[in-house]
């Protein structure tokens, strides 16, 4: 009995059950919601969020109040860089990927240096960096046109790639496998959990804590950059602050995936389910016919309700 209850209390299982329930709800509210085409479209949107959440996930796992509020800014920046580097030509895809990854890694590095060397709390450091990134976006936008996605990139994101499934979903699956291997099978992954659950013990055991933490922020920046690139492919051209929505939704996806904001506990498989859950919920709300205010109220209330299913803090005991 307790084995069964504990099985159903696993965040991944909770998320999967909720996903099925929401799909069923969506299908009954508007027939065709759970059709294969629609599910593929939801998966594309979820993969964009999921890729950002991958970086957010490792930063949060690394503990010490780890959080990256600058991901939204990096997504927007990366979309505009990619649009300008490729400017509608397939030949520009590879340089664009390199340029975006470099930019993401650079801002991640700055975040990491601020958090480790100056010991600025991650929330403050990445919040400040978000302001800098938003300012930078204004500067870039004034000087140059917003640029266009290469047809190859758009096809990769929106058109079937293999077995009728778009390339970005394959990319997301690959990232999922990569994250699972990295977190569970590599020294680096184990060290993330180590510094997340007890930084001091990890330091005493010889883990290069500062270097690790800088690395985590760089990973977060690079995942956000990849997402920005794919977002450009999804929408065709970049527009102001496309990435803003990812700042807090990536954190919610991680939380819905069962990763504790305190660090050291959780994984990416749950986060993938969390991202999907969030996107399906938003999908249902856009299909039902209520005005914006009602939609926001229902969305907020549902998020709160869903959070009750996940790890609540412990009650105080004497």
């Amino acid at each position: 009995m307790s084995a069964i209850t504990s099985f159903f209390k696993q965040p991944l299982i909770v998320a999967l059950i909720l996903i099925v329930a929401l799909l069923y709800l969506g299908q009954s509210l508007s027939p065709g919601f759970a059709s294969a085409d629609q599910i593929l479209r939801l998966l594309i949107v979820a993969s964009l969020l999921g890729i950002v959440a991958a970086g957010q996930n490792v930063v949060i796992l690394g503990g010490r109040e780890g959080i990256d509020l600058s991901v939204g800014g990096v997504v927007s920046l990366s979309a505009i860089i990619a649009g300008n580097v490729m400017n509608g030509a397939d030949g520009g895809i590879l340089p664009a990927v390199l340029a975006c990854l470099t930019a993401g890694a650079f801002f991640g590095l700055l975040n990491g240096l601020g958090v480790t060397l100056l010991r600025i709390p991650p929330l403050v450091m990445t919040l400040g960096m978000l302001g800098v990134l938003q300012g930078l976006l204004v500067v870039i936008r004034q000087g140059i046109p917003s640029g266009r996605a290469a047809p190859g990139l758009s096809a990769f994101v929106t058109q079937p790639f293999a077995f009728g499934i778009p390339g970005i979903i394959w990319l997301w699956i690959a990232i999922g496998l990569f994250m699972a291997l990295m977190l569970n099978r590599t020294v680096f992954g184990h060290r993330i959990y180590a510094i997340g659950s007890n930084e001091h013990a990890a330091y005493m055991a010889g883990v290069p804590v500062r270097l690790m933490r800088i690395g985590l922020f760089m990973i977060s920046g690079m995942f956000a950059a990849i997402a920005g690139l794919c977002l450009l492919g999804y929408s065709g051209s970049s527009f102001a602050n496309v990435g803003e929505q990812y700042m807090l939704s990536s954190i919610i996806a991680v939380v819905f995936g069962g990763t504790s904001l305190a660090g050291g506990k959780g994984g990416y498989t749950g986060t993938m389910a969390g991202a999907l859950l969030l996107v399906i919920l938003q999908g249902i709300l856009t299909t039902v016919n209520i005005d914006e205010s009602g939609r926001q109220m229902v969305f907020g209330a549902t998020l709160l309700l869903l959070m009750l299913f996940y790890g609540r803090g412990r009650a105080m005991r004497a």
């Binding site: 807090l248 914006e292 009602g294 109220m297 969305f299 998020l303």
Partner: peptide, 26 residues
């Protein structure tokens, strides 16, 4: 009282309050 994590829980309530504000004045 419900012991949700403050960052995500108050983000959720912010969406709810924004919805209310939009209801009062679209």
């Amino acid at each position: 009282a419900l012991r949700l994590q403050a960052i995500v829980a108050t983000f959720a309530t912010s969406i709810f309050f924004t919805g209310l504000a939009l209801y009062v004045m679209p």
